[in-house]
Structures are given as C-alpha cells and as structure tokens.
C-alpha cells in the first residue's frame, strides 16, 4: 500500500503482535446470553397463538352477521298485520277456502248433516268473496280506463302494491288470538275451528262495511281537479252503488247528485 510493501507487512505484523486487546469474559457472557435468549423468546409467543387468529376472526364475523340478520328480519307478528290490510290475495283465498279441510281430518261429535251444512256455508262464503273481488277488480279497471293517463310517478305509485279494503280487513278488528292464529297459519298451516271461523266472519261483516280503495277515491278527486265533473260524478255514483255504506269525504260531496244526497 505504501511505497515499500515489505515495510507495510512489517507494520501489520508489528500491529498484530501489539494489539491483543479483547473483551472481558463478563462482556462475552452477557452477549452470548442475549443471543441465546433472543432465539428462545420469539418461538413461544407468535407461533403458539397465531394459528388461532383466523378461526376466531371468522367465528366472530359469523356471529355478528347472524345476530344482525336475526335482528333485522321481520318478526312473524308484523307480517299478518300487514297482510290484514291487503286485499285478499291468491295466497289468502285458499286459506279461507281450505279452512273446512281440517274439520274433515278431525271429525267432532256433531252429526254428519250439520257438518255438511257448515261446509256448504263455507263454500258459499268463499264463492261470494271471490265474486265480490272479481266485481271490484272490474270496477277498478273500468275507472282506470276512464281516467286520464297518469304521470310517470303516479303510474309507478299505481303499480306499487297498496293496502285495500277487503274482506280481510276485519282481521284488524279481530282479537289478538285470531291475529296470532293467522300469523301462525302463515308460517305453518293449522286447522281453525269452524265455529270460531263462523263467528269471526259474521262479526267482521257486521262491524266493518266494505270500503272503496284509496285509488278509487283519488281517481275521482283527480277527475274533479281536472274539471271533468261529469266523469267524476259518474264515477262517484258508481262507487256509491258499489259501496252503499261508504261515507263520502267532504271534498267529494259536491259531486253527489241532489236526489241521492240524503244517502250520504
């Protein structure tokens, strides 16, 4: 490295001979102990528990999701109340019509003749309900055809399902037991005692007159607003024929023909 390589070697040798300094044994012991301890500690902590992290996380997430789903799911008691205000759908009709069936399965001590008469009554009620519904549907269609086309928003509202007066409305007036029975029947069909059903129907018919739909009323209001008074009067008259017990709202009473005002 310097000018004389032999001299450099001599210097290096002299240095190596002179430099004998070394760390003390205590210092050696401390460092070796630290080196060994470092190898032992990390093996214990992460390796033992790390494999549990993923399963525990997955289980926690599953429990959380399940809890949320159960919390957000509609309870069975609310569903029948909603359906009580809805028109009798095809899903409900068989229920009503099928109610006599359980009686066949569980014959009571009554005579066969009385049982046949009850079945006839039930069939008559179901037939009357079906005929009424059909008639109402035709009326609604007729009124919708007579009314001017609705704006897009109104159309979308029209297409949306809405509650309507129906023979199912008496369910609102039914006692809690009947509602509970209805709810249970939705989840799992159960036979309803014929006597109770009969009492329920008669009570419902007496207490709750049949009502036009909101849409029918609203259509008449719309005709009135648009100045189509003749059409509105005609529609209201048809409505009153269809629902003689219906109390006409204040804003529509002007459309009632003088001859029939006493019926309002």
């Amino acid at each position: 490295m310097s000018n004389d390589p032999h001299m450099d070697d001599a210097i290096r040798q002299a240095y190596r001979a002179a430099a004998q300094t070394e760390p003390g044994p205590q210092l050696d012991a401390r460092i070796l102990q630290a080196a060994h301890a470092a190898l032992e500690s990390p093996k214990q902590t992460p390796a033992r528990w790390s494999w549990l992290v993923l399963p525990f996380s997955a289980a926690a997430v599953a429990i959380l999701v399940t809890t949320l789903v159960l919390q957000l799911r509609p309870t069975p008691s609310t569903q029948p109340l909603e359906s009580a205000g809805a028109p009798p759908t095809s899903a409900m009709k068989p229920e009503v019509a099928a109610t006599p069936k359980p009686e066949k399965k569980t014959p009571g001590p009554t005579a066969p003749a009385s049982r046949a008469s009850r079945q006839d009554q039930a069939a008559q009620i179901a037939g009357a309900e079906a005929a009424l519904l059909e008639q109402r549907r035709k009326e609604s269609e007729k009124m919708a055809a007579a009314a001017p086309p609705l704006p897009p928003l109104a159309r979308s509202v029209e297409s949306a399902p809405r509650p309507a007066p129906s023979p199912a409305q008496p369910l609102e007036d039914a006692d809690a037991a009947a509602v509970g029975a209805s709810a249970a029947a939705e989840a799992e069909p159960r036979p309803v005692p014929e006597a109770k059903l009969e009492a329920f129907r008669s009570q419902a018919k007496a207490r709750s007159p049949e009502m036009p739909t909101d849409k029918q009323i609203e259509d008449i209001r719309k005709l009135q607003r648009e100045g189509k008074l003749e059409a509105a009067k005609k529609a209201l008259a048809e409505l009153r024929k269809q629902f003689p017990h219906y109390k006409v709202p204040e804003d529509l009473r002007g459309l009632i023909e003088p001859a029939s005002k006493e019926n309002k």
Partner: peptide, 20 residues
Amino acid sequence: DGDAGAFDVLYGRNRGKLYR
C-alpha cells in the same frame, strides 16, 4: 434459523477484531 451454537462460533471468531 435458530442455531444458537452457530452464534457462539461466530462471536468467537469476530469478538477480538471488533473490540479492537
């Protein structure tokens, strides 16, 4: 990789040089 003995050898070889 976990061989503590390897460190002992390594340390023995380099301790004096580093200390000086």
